[in-house]
């Protein structure tokens, strides 16, 4: 299968105060289309930085980042913004829903950037909410929903524009075991039945078990890889 995401000799460093911090030291990686990849490793190992680079939220200091046919490390800030809107679905640890909007309005936000009509947007929002099992909570605001429900709304928002790649940063980090399992089953279903390519950063080994591939990062380098066949 062809690689959807390719990282070639990617290095990333930050300047914090007067100090230069090397986060990634020449990472090479390929993620195939349809894969569910879990990125694991201790805090500060560079997991989130790598995820940000794949999602076009940040640019590498050197190296190549290719997603699909796009060399995104070469894109300008505004081109990268447009690219993200078309290609990436984001799921965060703390859901990051807009508290003043209802669930359906939150899910609709990425679609505001498209040329879809209002009725087309509504149709898509409904479908996404049905897919995550929250069609009956469409009119509720985030503070009227449980943590698990809020994360499901965030997943609906991530998939509503049918992105090429779903990136998840600790999606179960703020949830109890039961809700975490529900979210992971939902991501698994999206991967297995909808064919979504998912890259997920997690500290939780139980969450990582849902992935088809497990990558371990340590001090900015890929240290270990595990491929598993999950039913």
């Amino acid at each position: 299968m062809a690689a959807l995401v390719t990282l070639r000799n990617v290095k990333k460093s930050y300047v914090r105060g007067k100090q230069k911090v090397e986060v990634l030291h020449g990472v090479d990686l390929e993620v195939e289309a349809g894969e569910f990849t879990a990125l694991m490793g201790p805090s500060g190992s560079g997991k989130t930085t790598m995820l940000n680079l794949m999602a076009g939220l940040d640019q590498p200091t050197s190296g190549e980042v290719i997603v699909g046919t796009d060399r995104i490390d070469k894109l300008s800030r505004s081109a990268l913004t447009d690219w993200r809107a078309r290609n990436i679905g984001f799921i965060f640890q703390f859901y990051n829903l807009l508290p003043v909007l209802t669930a359906e309005a939150n899910v609709e936000v990425p679609l505001l950037l498209t040329t879809l009509s209002r009725s087309q947007r509504r149709q898509r929002v409904q479908t996404a909410l049905q897919l995550v099992g929250l069609a009956d909570r469409a009119k509720h605001k985030p503070n009227e929903l449980s943590g698990g429900q809020q994360q499901r709304v965030a997943i609906a928002r991530a998939i509503v524009s049918d992105p090429t790649l779903l990136v998840c940063d600790e999606p179960t980090g703020d949830l109890d075991r039961e809700n975490a399992e529900e979210i992971m089953n939902l991501l698994k279903a999206l991967n297995r039945s909808q064919g979504k390519t998912i890259v997920m950063v997690t500290h939780d080994p139980r969450a990582a078990e849902y992935a088809t591939r497990e990558l371990h990062l340590d001090k900015g380098r890929l240290s270990r890889e595990e491929v598993r066949h999950v039913a």
């Binding site: 800030r77 505004s78 913004t81 993200r84 809107a85 078309r86 984001f90 990051n96 990425p110 950037l113």
Partner: peptide, 10 residues
């Protein structure tokens, strides 16, 4: 920041 992440330009 979330809006920008989702593709809202500066």
């Amino acid at each position: 920041a979330v809006l920008k992440t989702l593709g809202f330009s500066d």
